[in-house]
């Protein structure tokens, strides 16, 4: 074993380097107190450290970050026509999560993934129990295979979103929208991008999970008039003062490996990496997964997902704690 050989040094040096004698268990105890960025960086220390950090038993204790994305594919010649996939963030290796969801109470084909938030997934499960309503919402944690079926929703095919923050509470929230909205859950608030009824300008609406506090934040005027050929990233520095600061701007053309604008029209922003200045998106007819690094202004092709694939592309950060509370 590499780990053992790395530790078994000549007596003299081992005596002087107590750090080299540490057991894996103790190393994990130390590593789990570090930011996820440090832990990932230390995979470069040696093979045995990489194995230690990636070991499933240790993974449960170590901080986690974006592991990859769930997505779907369609093929009319295949049975079943629709399939669920998971790609690792590296684009390589066995998927971190096998997206069969065989632990759910309905056949795998009857599960549609809707949203992902801090380790939990929101799905629609068809055909559980009697025929009405046509589906139930299920919130599950694929890392622990725990799931909760929600009491009946509207039964209508609406946009539904998940709000969950394990650092705050083991309770999650499911929000069903009447309109199709883009939203994100942050600091206990669901943030939705919508337009002002009066003037049609874009606004971000924040609502807490009791539905008591609603706030509307105007987006910077320059966003509405922005140059369509650029991707601009703004940060909401101060919620109360509605203060947006420009963070980064890049010509969209620069993001694509092929410089033909016609080909490049078809691109979808997936997510920001939670720990760093990386943007993930898919682009082109064969749905190439690409990462753009803001700091270095570098574009990296991760892999081609293939032209049969389709969204939603759901970013996934594993959560290994057992807790999963209702509502």
């Amino acid at each position: 074993m590499e780990a053992a050989s790395a530790k078994r040094r000549p007596a003299a040096s081992a005596k002087r380097k107590p750090a080299a004698r540490l057991t894996d268990e103790l190393l994990v105890e130390i590593l789990r107190r570090l930011p996820v960025r440090s832990v990932c960086r230390f995979k470069c220390v040696s093979r045995s450290w990489r194995n230690l950090i990636s070991n499933p038993a240790h993974r449960k204790k170590l901080p986690q970050t974006l592991a990859g994305f769930f997505y779907r594919s369609w093929n009319w010649e295949r049975f079943p026509r629709s399939a669920r996939h998971f790609t690792n963030i590296t684009g390589k290796g066995r998927p971190f999560i096998v997206p069969s969801f065989s632990f759910l109470p309905v056949p795998s084909d009857n599960v549609t993934l809707l949203d992902s938030c801090n380790g939990l997934l929101l799905c629609r499960c068809f055909g559980a129990g009697d025929a009405s309503p046509p589906f139930h919402y299920v919130v599950c944690n694929p890392a622990t295979k725990k799931w909760v079926m929600l009491p009946d929703g509207s039964g209508e095919d609406r946009t539904a979103c998940l709000g969950f923050d394990p650092a705050v509470s083991s309770h999650f929230h499911v929000v069903e929208y009447v309109d199709d909205e883009r939203s994100a859950f942050l600091n206990g608030f669901m943030h939705m991008l919508t337009s002002d009824e009066d003037n049609g300008n874009h606004v971000v609406v924040m609502v807490d999970m009791e539905g008591k506090t609603w706030r509307t934040i105007p987006v910077p005027t320059n966003i509405d008039n922005a140059d369509a050929s650029k991707l601009s990233i703004w940060i909401l520095k101060d919620h109360a003062a509605h203060e947006w600061t420009p963070k980064h701007s890049v010509r969209i053309q620069f993001l694509f490996p092929e410089k033909d604008i016609e080909i490049n029209m078809n691109w979808t922003l997936i997510t920001f990496h939670p720990e760093c200045n990386l943007i993930y998106f898919v682009y082109g007819w064969d749905d190439t997964l690409i990462a753009y690094e803001m700091d270095r202004k570098e574009v990296r092709v991760i892999r081609k997902l293939g032209n049969e694939c389709s969204g939603p592309y759901l970013p996934y950060v594993p959560l290994f704690t057992e807790a999963l509370a209702d509502g």
Binding site: P35, V45, S48
Partner: peptide, 17 residues
Amino acid sequence: KGKSPDQIREVFNIKND
């Protein structure tokens, strides 16, 4: 925290394999 893999190898007496 904040150390490079090189510095960690030094502290833990690990060979880069």
